[in-house]
Design a protein around this nucleic acid. Structure first.
Lengths: 324, 324
DNA sequence: GATATGCTATACAGAAATAGATGAAGTCAG
DNA sequence: CTGACTTCATCTATTTCTGTATAGCATATC
């Protein structure tokens, strides 16, 4: 029985596909260019055909190579996750059991506005805990171990995930006081047509639902289009115009005014999600619980400020994880 | 930046955990025992602590090592899947595009009774196609690439899977003619209490539903308990007693008699499931379509024999895959 | 109690992979 | 057109890793 190719070849392969050259891959992997070339040669002879078209400008992946790329990506995610998991067991000097690395993914707004104080407190309590924070509005794949824990605005559909629903987060339209002084306060949704609107660039499935409820907010009406929610908020604060913003976030900026509060009302769900396998991991449990409590407190506080309702619904799809 | 450990270490690690010794892992991986020992040493120094307790009888994994094992398993599944995917692009001499390896998982009965003729025809049409068939009643993880295509009796709940529902398959109680001559034919479900029943050993979630509908068939009532469906069928054919069997399968054995056909009636759903990413792969599409058509034909034929109804419901949760 | 068999750990020679240096060829800016 | 830069391919010296052989130890068997 001929043995399989070395798994390291896959790592090199992925780097070459992504970098587009042997030299670039060598730099990334801290290898030399001839070594990378040998790895690719070995992989090609193992599969029996060419994976790249060589040129002087680099290597371009063939169709076959692109087909294999997702597998190599999974391998990379998984081995990174393995190392994170391993980091939780390092022998310790103080006896604290929450240590190692946890990778969290969240939306830009959540990661930039809500998480930092929560993570700061968490870190103070567990000085050996290392946090990796990935901000992206794309839903990353927990099953592929792209991250350990996710804070999401959509309900997770996959099995094998532990999800905990938090109280929803309100979305409203806001503008800077200066802008409204200058341009007037809109009295109805139709008034928005005469205003400078801040909105999205690329349409996502989540946005499509909002668009259906509020047709005024279509892409053509926007005076500023940005896919970065943080850029949108910054534009609102700069007095560019009227845009959507999470209510608790806007509340922190006293110059922002909530417009059409009754006419435009949306509540986004929020879930903390974790792979089921990780519930036995002390550090993941600690982070999970900290996120649940921290986000809940954030929501409650802002709910009390805005609507006066301090109740927090908190369902869990599977067994509750006892706080440590 | 210190570079990550070699991915090959993870492969060796998994082999050592599963084999329980350096020597055993070396045999499996076609390496030598000192090499395996060096790999483990390297991995342990990379993570910073011990992963195994050495003894004269072998190595036993620590708690930390067991935590890392699932990641290593995913790595192994994924790299095996990568190689299967790569096998589909081997340069060919005849120009046929359906070639390479496809891994199918199915239940014992389906794999042993229904699939072989379908696969035989498929192989005749595509001589360069290699089939790996894994028979197991446990639902293997398509997302983890344990297999490319699955024939299942439960509806897949996960996203990112293409599923196609086939007409259900009937389940009935059967016994050998000789047994019934000897012991009489039961006239009602309660009569079963006086018979030699063939049933399951370990209770699974799927069985629990059946048990709720037919409390007579509880575990204590069984004279023969076997988790292998094939063993159960063999026992029925040997005249041991009365047991459950898929109707189309029982129909092939003229000596088997359908008992309590009206009183005991069950229909199992059947799905052909594939990872969405594979729908662009010619060989996976070909196998998927062959399974859908083949199983549909099998069901229709038997349905015509048993109930006279030849209609086949065929829904697809996502876009239909055009036959090639 | 002696023997056989499994395991790990260690020492050393050889094989294999790697790094380094160089050459050739294409690309881009001036 | 020319020069600077980047790319891949090739050759050689060296480091690294692997395999072989051996020793030590515990357990099971007769």
């Amino acid at each position: 029985m001929k043995s399989d190719p070395s798994w390291d070849l896959y790592r090199t392969f992925l780097a070459v596909v992504e970098e587009g050259s042997l030299s670039g891959a060598a730099r990334r992997l801290d290898l030399t260019q001839p070594t990378v070339a040998r790895h690719i040669d070995a992989l090609e002879s193992a599969v029996g055909y060419d994976l790249f078209l060589r040129s002087q400008r680099g290597l371009i992946a063939t169709e076959a190579a692109l087909e294999l790329k997702p597998y190599a990506e999974t391998l990379a995610s998984t081995s990174a996750a393995l190392l994170r998991a391993a980091s939780g067991y390092a022998r310790t000097t103080d006896g604290g059991s929450v240590k190692g690395t946890v990778r969290i993914t969240a939306s830009e707004v959540v990661g930039a506005e809500h998480l930092p104080p929560i993570l700061a407190r968490l870190r103070q309590r567990h000085p050996q805990l290392v946090i990796e924070l990935v901000l992206s509005n794309e839903v990353s794949d927990l099953l592929r171990r792209d991250a350990d824990i996710a804070v999401r605005m959509v309900e997770p559909a996959q099995d094998a995930l532990i999800a905990r629903r938090l109280s929803g987060i309100g979305l409203g339209l806001f503008a800077h006081r200066d802008y409204l002084d200058r341009r007037g306060v809109p009295a109805s949704m139709t008034d928005l047509a005469g205003h400078d609107l801040i909105g999205f660039d690329r349409e996502t499935p989540a946005l499509r639902g909002i668009l259906r409820r509020f047709p005024v907010l279509n892409r053509a009406a926007f005076a500023l289009r940005a896919d970065s929610d943080l850029a949108q908020i910054a534009a609102i604060r700069a007095g560019f115009g009227i845009g959507g913003c999470q209510i608790p976030v806007a509340r922190r900026h006293p110059d922002l005014v909530h417009v059409l509060a009754r006419e435009f009302e949306l509540e986004l769900g929020m879930w903390i999600v974790m792979h089921e396998d990780l519930k036995t991991s002390p550090r993941c449990r600690a982070v999970f619980n900290a996120l649940v409590e921290g986000m809940d407190a954030t929501m409650d506080k802002s709910a009390a400020q805005t609507t006066g309702s301090g109740t927090s619904t908190c369902d869990s799809r599977s067994a509750t994880i006892a706080p440590m």
